[in-house]
C-alpha cells in the first residue's frame, strides 16, 4: 500500500495536497482498498463551504455508503467531474486522477492537525489491531 510523503492525512482516511492556499483532497489507498470497487460518488457543489472533520460527500461501493470527512476547512473551488462516469478512478489512482475536490483553505493552520505519511501508516496499523 502506498502513502506518498508529500501528502498530509486525516484520520478519516482522506489526504490533502497543498498548493499555495489551495488543497487537493482525495481518499487514501487504504480507504479505497477497504471499500472495494467504488461505484458512485456524491461531491459538494462548487462554491460551497466545507468544515474540517465534517462530511462533504459520500462514496459508495457495492455494499456500503461511506461519508467523506473534510480534512480541512474552506471553499470548494473545483470538483473532479470525471468521477461521475468513472468512479473507478478512485480505486485505480487514488492520489492522482482519483482526486475528489479542490478547496481554497480558510485556515491553513489546520494543516498542523493532520498526520504525516508515517504517522498515518502507524495509525491504520493500530486501527486494524
Amino acid at each position: 500500500m502506498d502513502f506518498p510523503k508529500d501528502l498530509k492525512y486525516h484520520k478519516e482516511h482522506t489526504w490533502v495536497k497543498v498548493e499555495g492556499n489551495r488543497a487537493l483532497i482525495g481518499i487514501t489507498d487504504h480507504a479505497q482498498e477497504e471499500l472495494g470497487d467504488i461505484v458512485y460518488v456524491e461531491l459538494p457543489e462548487r462554491g460551497s463551504d466545507s468544515e474540517q472533520d465534517e462530511s462533504f460527500g459520500t462514496v459508495e461501493s457495492a455494499k456500503a455508503i461511506s461519508e467523506l470527512f473534510a480534512p480541512i476547512s474552506g471553499r470548494v473551488v473545483d470538483i473532479n467531474e470525471d468521477l461521475a462516469d468513472q468512479p473507478e478512478l478512485i480505486n485505480d489512482d487514488p492520489y492522482d486522477s482519483g482526486w475528489l475536490v479542490e478547496i481554497e483553505m480558510s485556515d491553513p493552520s489546520e494543516l498542523d492537525s493532520l498526520l504525516t505519511a508515517d504517522t498515518y501508516k502507524k495509525y491504520i496499523e493500530e486501527e486494524k489491531g
Partner: peptide, 20 residues
Amino acid sequence: AKMTTFAGWEMPLEYSGIID
C-alpha cells in the same frame, strides 16, 4: 479473499473485486 458475514456464515465477499 475479503470475508463477510452472511446468514451466520463467514463467507468470501470478493477476491479480485466484485466488478471484475
